[in-house]
């Protein structure tokens, strides 16, 4: 004796669920590392110093152990790039051919027109399971100025993401101890900086 309706309907229900699970397990291969693994990796020092870039830049190209990647569009790359850098435009970062280029045992260093584009590429590459990827801080202009044209040891550990001012002084918030205190009127000029070419 069977209860045909119950059997059929439960079979249908569970088959749909199981099929969906199997389908999901086979189609979710877009990433090579979980989001959590990526954030954990981002906590490590993912930026190289200008000093090591300078060492790389002044060394003989045959002795180099690093792959430097220029993420800017091909036009900008053609106008000027670090000698020895490979061009992989950010938009095509995950193309199959570029993937093969990136699959090396040597460290991969990224730079772009903006530091945050390099960071975006880094995050995405870590997500693909690449491990040995780092970012050259600053944009191409800054790299060119401080490494290629004249190496400035005071900028050896340059970071674009460093605070340029003591923000607290300009924007007094409710948390200051003396809320009535007027902020210092003298506004220091910002540290000399290469102009950021346009917003994105």
């Amino acid at each position: 004796m069977k209860n045909q309706t119950l059997n059929d309907s439960t079979l249908l229900f569970f088959s749909i669920i199981m099929l969906a699970v199997v389908f999901a397990l086979f189609t979710s291969g877009k990433y090579g590392a979980s989001n959590r693994q990526v954030v954990d990796k981002l906590q490590d020092n993912v930026f190289i110093s200008y000093e090591s870039l300078y060492t790389w830049h002044s060394s003989d190209s045959k002795e180099r152990d690093q792959l430097v990647v220029d993420l800017r569009p091909p036009e900008e790359y053609r106008e000027g790039h670090l000698a020895g850098a490979v061009n992989i435009p950010f938009a095509d970062l995950l193309d199959r051919s570029h993937r093969r280029t990136l699959k090396t045992n040597s460290p991969v260093w990224l730079y772009a027109g903006h530091e945050h584009v390099s960071v975006a590429a880094l995050t995405l590459l870590l997500g693909q399971g690449f491990e040995n990827v780092q970012v050259i801080p600053g944009n191409f202009q800054a790299i060119k100025q401080h490494v290629v044209e004249s190496f400035d040891p005071s900028r050896a550990f340059y970071r674009d993401d460093k605070a340029r001012w003591d923000h607290q002084r300009f924007m007094p918030l409710g948390i200051t101890k003396e809320p009535d205190r007027k902020p210092s009127p003298a506004i220091p000029a910002p540290p000399e900086e290469t102009p950021v070419p346009g917003g994105c």
């Binding site: 990433y31 989001n35 990526v38 954030v39 981002l42 903006h114 530091e115 945050h116 960071v119 975006a120 995050t123 995405l124 997500g127 970012v135 970071r159 674009d160 993401d161 460093k162 605070a163 340029r164 950021v196 917003g199 994105c200």
Partner: peptide, 26 residues
């Protein structure tokens, strides 16, 4: 301070499927 940390946060959130997230430019 710049946009880099914000980009890491943005990509993590966007990848997780959180919509309506943005980066303050610069």
């Amino acid at each position: 301070n710049g946009s880099s940390n914000a980009m890491m946060a943005y990509l993590t959130a966007a990848r997780a499927g959180y919509d309506n997230v943005f980066i303050m430019d610069g």
